[in-house]
Amino acid sequence: MTTAVVGTAGIAVRGLGKRYGKSVALEDCTFDLPEGRVAALVGANGAGKTTLLTVLSGLLRPDAGEFALRPDERVAFVSQEKPVYKHFTPKEMLRLGARLNLVWDQARAEAWLKRFDVPLDRRCGKLSGGQRTQVALAVAIGSRPTLLLLDEPLADLDPLARTEVTRELLAEVADSGTTVVLSTHIVTELAGVADHLLLLAHGKLLAGGDLDELLAAHVMVVGPRADEPPVEGEVLWDRHLDGQSLFLVKTPSTPAVSAPWVVRPVTLEDYVLAQLSITRKGDSA
C-alpha cells in the first residue's frame, strides 16, 4: 500500500479515500507534509480528521489511493479516546510502551507524567480523564516517534493544561525533529503552534500548505456596506452586517485601499471559518 510516491515529503498522500458503507469519510485526499512540520488538521466534526489520522497510523486500510512515509518512519498515534488499560497503573502503561516499541525513552515518559502530576501507582481506571490523556501522551512520547499523530489531544484538558501540554509537546518535538499531525477544532489556539494547515470538510481537503504562506496570500478587506471590495483578487468569502461589509480576498500582495476601507491581515480563525462556510453554502446550493 505504501508504495513509492515521488517527492521529498515526510508524508506523501495521493488520492486517499475511505468510505463506510454509503457515507464517505475521506475522498481524494492529496497532500505533502515535509518532515519536521507541526501540521494542524482542522475541520468540523465528521470532516474525516479521525479517519485520515487512523489511515496514516497504519491501523485502518484505505479504500482508494496511497500514502508514503519515510522508510524508517516510526509512527505513534494517540486516538481521540486516549485509550489506556484501566487495570494498569501509569507505570505499567509505560512498561507496556517499553515492551512494545523498538525505541523507548523511560526518562522522558516518566518526566511527562511527573510534569503533569499523574500518580504513577494508581490504576488508570481511577484517574481523571485529563490524567488518562497524559498517560496516553506519555506512552507516545516515550516511544520517540518520527511521526506523531494526535487526534484531538487537548479536548479533555482544562485551559491551563492545554497551554502547558502544547508547550511541552512542542518542546519534545523540537528536540527530536518529529513530524506532528494534530487534529483539533479549537482553531484559536493554533497560532504559533502549527506551521502547516490541513483543512478538511466532508472528507475532502479544502486547503493544505504552509500556514504563513496560506495566510499571507489572503487579506480581509473591511468597509462600508458594498457588493464588491475595492480591491483586485478573488473574493473567497464575504459577510454583510448592517453598516459593514467584510471580504476575504485572495491576493498575492497587500492592496492599497482608501478610507473608509481598511485591509486587515487574515487570522487563522478568519481563514478557517471562511473556508468552512464556503463548503456549507456549496452544500445547500
Binding site: T54, S57, G58, L59, R74, V75, A76, F77, S79, E81, P83, V84, Y85, K86, L96, G97, L100, N101, L102, V103, A136, V139, S143
Partner: peptide, 18 residues
C-alpha cells in the same frame, strides 16, 4: 470496546504479532 486496540496495535508491533 475500550478502544485500547488503537493503543496496543499502534506501537512498533503489528496487531498480528500482539
Amino acid at each position: 470496546e475500550a478502544r485500547t486496540n488503537l493503543l496496543a496495535w499502534g506501537q512498533d508491533v503489528p496487531a498480528t504479532r500482539w
